[in-house]
Design a protein around this nucleic acid. Structure first.
Lengths: 129, 129
DNA sequence: TTGACTTTACGAAGAACTTCGTATAGCGTC
DNA sequence: GACGCTATACGAAGTTCTTCGTAAAGTCAA
């Protein structure tokens, strides 16, 4: 069971991961304070989730200090790509292109975003050439 | 509980929806035969899922015939857009543009796909102008 | 009408998710 | 050392998801 791909993070797990990506390595307290701005989630709930995420391999835990420090195991980009690949398989027949076009038509993007995407396309095709 | 937005379909539900989108209105038997090509899923499992999906509003049921006929309530595109918006919110800070670029970098797209996307961009910017 | 077959209905079981209460242990201070 | 604060650990409860067994009802043909 070496490096089996981890199950995709659940909603609550993803919310925690977002905090970890933003803040870097954090304690339970850190995460809890961050997430408690809006919806109320108990301290021990965060703790439990982080324990489970440690088991699943979503985060790594540093136990040298009394307050354990948790860190996301995979980068935000890597996780995002995993989630997208997953969604492409489940809902788009595996086609990233279909996914992209649907995403573009679904949400309004600003002109800046559109040109950023265009530049991105340029770079992609440049590499392919 | 009028027309509350439906929860996003689960994995098993999405698999069934894909069959319904592809085949059009179908009976439990139809769906079961389609899904049983690869993984084995029991007949009553599909039935139960379709019953739940009816409650949730993912499908509508026509009971005029003995074998009830199920139909996806929302189009493939609409559901895809909902799923993408959901993922954008949960993992991309609500930015469709970031999602698109990550999707493009994660999976290789063919040259045809890339130019299709480029045309799509052209049309989008044309509309915006 | 009886029997074989098909279909839906019901309920239950096991897993995963999310939440939290309570117990326990570490650590600093008086 | 005792007290209070903070942290982790444990376990349990309630919900959802997925699966399927079994019962009940409809349908057709012999």
């Amino acid at each position: 069971m070496v490096d089996r791909p981890h199950p995709r993070p659940t909603d609550a797990e993803l919310a925690i991961l977002r905090v970890l990506w933003q803040r870097g390595p954090s304690t339970v307290r850190d995460v809890h304070e961050e997430l408690n701005r809006d919806g109320a989630t108990g301290y021990t709930t965060i703790l439990k989730l982080l324990q489970i995420m440690t088991e699943k391999g979503h985060v790594v835990r540093d136990e040298t200090e009394r307050a354990h420090v948790y860190e996301a195991r995979y980068s935000e980009q890597k996780t995002q790509r995993q989630l997208l690949g997953d969604l492409a398989d489940r809902a788009f027949g595996g086609s990233a292109a279909k996914l992209v076009m649907q995403a573009l038509s679904g949400r309004k993007a600003t002109a800046e975003e559109l040109s950023a995407i265009r530049e991105f396309l340029d770079r992609l095709e440049g590499d392919a050439r």
